[in-house]
């Protein structure tokens, strides 16, 4: 047993997992730099003559820049909206003596596991009736709702570790509840808030089903739902599809790499026991 968990075996395991994690991402990148001919001749090899023509074509053949803008707008509004709502609610649930806190917490945990696909049809009909279909607002409202339960779960978990004395002291100083939240709780929660923000942005940026169904006009698509058009139209030009895929991953990838350090810390605050 001990041998099985020896140091070299553990390294071998991690190296295998790392290669498996990196290769598909690397494959997207290296393929996007190849011409279709080069790719067909040798799909495995490194690009011998890297070209940027796929990226150029990506942006000219479809309104990719417009889709990217839509994705950014949706991510910003849905994530900040959900986090604002969740901050208010979590603060009230943790730092007041209001009734029904356990009921609200359990409801949120139950909602976290409701499959969104079961909500999609009624929400679609509702948005049609409200004349919001094909507007970014329809998706933003839906996402806010989907983000709130996890955000409340995450933030209440974190806020339980904020010393209550701080809140009491601020109360005695005459701060309003909202001022305490803004000036004391939020600054103390920066790592947790950052991580929660990242988790929600990843979700908003990556979501496909709702974006596909609610935004069906060429101009209103997100990057993810637009990408599926690529796949259909360029089934014989895979490097071009991979260029589109790479463009759509890049913003999240950069955000993750630069925020890496806070990410684990924030996770610990929000879901570590």
């Amino acid at each position: 047993m001990r041998n099985l968990f020896g140091s070299s075996y553990r390294h071998a395991f991690l190296i295998f997992l790392s290669l498996a994690s990196i290769y598909p991402v690397w494959f997207i990148f290296q393929t996007s730099l190849k011409t279709n001919n080069e790719y067909l001749l040798n799909p495995l090899a490194l690009p011998l003559h890297p070209v940027l023509s796929n990226f150029r074509e990506t942006f000219t053949s479809f309104p990719v820049a417009h889709w990217a803008l839509n994705s950014v707008i949706i991510a910003i509004f849905s994530v900040s909206g959900a986090m604002f709502i969740a901050l208010l609610a979590s603060y009230a649930m943790v730092f007041s003596k209001m009734r029904g806190v356990n009921f609200l917490l359990n409801t949120n945990i139950a909602l976290m596991v409701i499959p969104p696909v079961t909500l999609v049809i009624p929400m679609f009909m509702l948005m049609v009736n409200l004349h919001l279909i094909n507007t970014l607002a329809s998706v933003i409202i839906f996402y806010i709702g989907l983000f709130v339960p996890f955000s409340v779960f995450f933030l209440t978990n974190f806020m339980k570790s904020v010393p209550y004395e701080l809140i009491e002291a601020a109360k005695i100083d005459g701060l309003t509840p909202f001022a305490i939240l803004r000036r004391i709780v939020v600054p103390l929660s920066s790592a947790a808030l950052f991580t929660l923000m990242l988790v929600n942005i990843i979700y908003a940026w990556n979501e496909l089903l709702i974006a596909l169904v609610f935004l069906q006009q060429q101009e209103s698509r997100t990057l993810m739902s637009g990408l599926s058009l690529f796949q259909g139209r360029y089934s014989i030009n895979q490097p071009l599809v991979m260029a589109g895929a790479f463009v759509s991953v890049l913003p999240i990838l950069l955000m993750y790499i630069f925020g890496q350090r806070f990410f684990v810390k924030g996770m610990m605050a929000g879901i570590g026991k």
């Binding site: 994690s21 598909p24 997207i28 990556n206 496909l208 990408l227 599809v241 999240i252 993750y256």
Partner: peptide, 20 residues
């Protein structure tokens, strides 16, 4: 850093890449 990577890759992109 590397092992967290698959988590941030959109499922649709994962699907595209793996289909090839």
């Amino acid at each position: 850093v590397i092992l967290f990577l698959p988590y941030i890759i959109p499922a649709a992109v994962v699907g595209l890449s793996f289909s090839y």
